[in-house]
Design a protein around this nucleic acid. Structure first.
Lengths: 207, 207
DNA sequence: CTATGTGAATTTATTCACAGCA
DNA sequence: TGCTGTGAATAAATTCACATAG
């Protein structure tokens, strides 16, 4: 293995592989070939092998991969081998759904705090989380929370981002349908639900 | 302009441009240069011009783009120039949030039906939509609904997909965290919320 | 005989640089 | 002069093909 910059696309795919491996572990499976994993995930086997090769390769020729080991390696690469505390900002419809979302746990995420500006919501408990006043976002620093989910209305997104960045947040999953400006060292991933939908009709056959 | 296959990445970006243009229209703006639009969206100006050039270009040298015209052109390319009826399958936490989500409207989407398997939910109305029995999915064909959102638990995703494809669905936005198999002519876009989050720690500086 | 890992070839996408129009 | 549109250059990602290890 020679030095390679890791392609962004490889990093984007690693969680997919992880998702599949966790499922296979659930099923009690212990080993898998790149071919079988690929078929299961709907990707190509050479893509999987190439992706792993950037890290030196995790398998055994002729045998395939040990699922437990592979899982551990990918978790380590993605820094998912520790629990990450999350703050959720905005407990509206989407925010509430995210609070209840069971899928974060398998990657080691723990929603440790929730914030809103609505006085009617502040103080209420949702899924064991007390909703706090969004004007107290600065306390995230004290509580060592470095990841946040923004689920506020579009027009509040930028000011929310500014506040949490000031509070030491290093990574943001942004569900607001807008571009937000942050310092270079802060990573933002935006998921715009309607936008994903918006490119679906393009691929539909004319009817 | 010579013939070019349209890059998938260009199609992926068009909704972003559209989102920005709709916002600018809201603000009362009528014209914009690729430079200004790019800054606003957090992309490069040459990327925007290149993307538009695949369709022949929509601007005027020295002047920029007329927002109204540009919006219309992109809507047409993405086939968003007609209202698309949507079916939502699965009215759990996430599904309910999607029913209430205001963002679909600007792209011309209309959630026209909602389905669930839970007898306690069937018959209830949420946001003016009557929740129907998921065993009646075949009626989507009669109602000319061709797009669906899957928001069911993972283990029900594939059978849901099978049912709606049989009912004539041509495009699926899948929120279930798994790969689903469909005929080639059906387009699936999967949004796995936890997976997006899962690649965030990778980009965080070691602390 | 099976399945990995990886250079090399190919394809795809981004970026540049500038001719040419308003 | 300002800004578009686009070939050409560069960069990045995917796919291939096969040597090699178990």
């Amino acid at each position: 293995m020679r030095y390679h910059r890791i392609p962004d696309e490889t990093i984007r795919r690693l969680p997919t592989y992880l998702r599949g491996l966790l499922f296979l572990t659930e099923q009690g499976q212990q080993n898998i070939s790149s071919r079988n994993l690929a078929d299961f995930l709907g990707v190509n086997s050479w893509q999987i092998r190439k992706d792993f090769s950037y890290f030196g390769g995790f398998g055994t020729p002729g045998r395939g991969y040990k699922i437990e080991n592979l899982t551990k390696q990918i978790n380590k690469i993605l820094k998912l081998d520790v629990v990450h505390k999350l703050a959720l900002i905005g407990v509206g419809n989407l925010g509430s759904a995210l609070l209840a979302y069971p899928g974060f746990q398998i990657y080691g995420f723990d929603i440790a705090a929730a914030f809103d500006t609505d006085p009617k919501k502040i103080g209420r408990k949702v899924k064991n989380i007390m909703i706090e006043d969004a004007s107290n976002l600065q306390m995230l620093k004290k509580r060592k929370i470095e990841l946040a989910i923004i689920a506020v209305p579009r027009d509040a997104a930028q000011q929310t981002a500014d506040a949490i960045v000031k509070a030491g947040i290093k990574g943001i999953l942004n569900f607001s349908p807008c571009y937000i400006t942050v310092p270079k060292k802060v990573k933002v991933i935006t998921v715009d639900i309607a936008m994903e939908l918006a490119r679906l009709p393009y691929y539909m056959p004319a009817s």
